[in-house]
Design a binder for these strands. Structure first.
Lengths: 248, 248
DNA sequence: TACTTGACGCGAACACTGTTCGTTTGTATA
DNA sequence: TATACAAACGAACAGTGTTCGCGTCAAGTA
């Protein structure tokens, strides 16, 4: 029995790709790949779908919407952050290492950090990291209320700085220059901009151009982090001095 | 002499607005009004144009693109921030007041603070504020390099926290509840979320729910600010101890 | 006063975006 | 083999930023 050919006016759809097995996992990892390679702005549902050889509608069976996809990608990135076992002797050092590690991770994934600023942290890895930081601080003798407040201060600081740092990389993507060349060029421009400001209206800015433009992104982040850690240490000293029962 | 009516087949354009005199100023203030009333997401070129009784294309004669419009609105907001004359006796206090004022201003203008995170500060009011902060710190004896580093740390912290705070207001806009009710409800939900976490995996988080969810946005911001100021003070002490020529 | 000129305003269109509807299709079960 | 079901998808909708080129109006000139 021969098949009846489809009537010519009913255009048969091309057989195309053979039903690729989609999944949340696949969608998330594809999304992250795009973000890493082309930045957060390049991430669209269509772009992900295209990468998977399908249409945008197919993604919505596995992911509620773009916001959820972003959250999932964000959590996936946070999974890379290492949480150590608390060692009371090294609590400040450990805390510093953790924050630096988080900064490093976010910095290596374009501007995904922006998602962190726009969300209340309730994803699995956010909780894991919060618990870890809390453990380190409590082990170090930080009063619980102070430790609790530190949690989101760290989070905001890390995300905000990583996001801002990523902006330069994002702009460099547009040009055809290497990152080093681009950064040097940009910083040079900023330097001359500050230098050419009217000295009568901005005497201090023009006088301290080198101090303003000298430190690079990593140095700036570390400075701010140490600022917070010094402040934290002072709170711990205060608490220790205030209660005779505490250690020391 | 009676006017000759227009022939019916030539559809006369509705006289409508008589060539409203567009201008950068008008566009910026209209944009800010929209942002204040409906949030940053509601700001589109079409929306601004509609508000002015015209089409989106008309705006591009006065504003290069949406990014420039956002920058202009952002600068307009920063104009509200007050910069005091430096008083060396009160430098720390003055610095604190300035940062708090900036936070208050940004908080009262929806999530416009997000723009600040995405830009290198070179607009007039950004410079004015930077010069002011620098003046206060230098007058207070902060070493120039430290003061220079503090500048963008403050900027990042203010914008990031204001942006995050604005998110709640943004979500509340979607619901029909009052802000107070909405916040209480949301915080209640977060509280129960933390309380219901598996205690074996998250012992500290579940044990300190009240400490984690207690302080409100303003308290959190002030805590972080004082953290930085305490850190800054310690740097100043170090510098003072290091160089016998300094005051003290 | 008549004419020219040029800038400003703007309608329509382009190439995108996130999201949804209703249909098609492949596979697993009865 | 026939049926049922869920996954996948094409097309469309309502938005977005931005550009092109045509009109129109106001000012400057003869």
């Amino acid at each position: 029995m021969t098949d009846i050919p489809a009537p010519p006016w009913r255009k048969t759809r091309a057989p195309s790709a053979p039903r690729t097995a989609l999944s949340r996992e696949l969608i998330v990892s594809t999304g992250l790949r795009i973000v890493d390679a082309e930045g957060l702005e390049a991430l669209s549902m269509r772009r992900v779908a295209q990468e998977l050889g399908t249409g945008p509608a197919s993604l919505y069976a596995h992911v509620a919407n773009k916001e959820e996809l972003l959250d999932l990608i964000y959590d996936r990135v946070m999974a890379e952050i290492h949480v150590p076992e608390p060692d009371p002797e090294r609590w400040l050092e450990q805390l510093r290492e953790m924050v630096m590690d988080a900064f490093r991770v976010f910095s290596s994934h374009a501007d995904i950090a922006r998602v962190g600023l726009a969300n209340i942290p309730t994803s699995p890895n956010a909780l894991r990291i919060a618990e870890g930081q809390l453990a380190i601080m409590l082990a170090g003798g930080v009063p619980p209320q102070i430790a609790a407040l530190m949690l989101d201060r760290f989070g905001i600081y890390i995300c905000a700085d990583a996001y801002e740092s990523a902006l330069y990389i994002n702009r460099q993507r547009g040009s055809d220059k290497d990152l080093d060349v681009f950064l040097e060029e940009t910083f040079g421009q900023i330097k001359t901009f500050y230098r050419n400001l009217p000295a009568d209206r901005f005497p201090r800015l023009t006088a301290h151009v080198d101090a303003l433009t000298g430190p690079d992104g990593d140095e700036r982040f570390e400075f701010g982090l140490d600022l917070m850690l010094r402040g934290l240490a002072s709170y711990v000293r205060d608490a220790g001095a205030g209660s005779p029962t505490s250690k020391g």
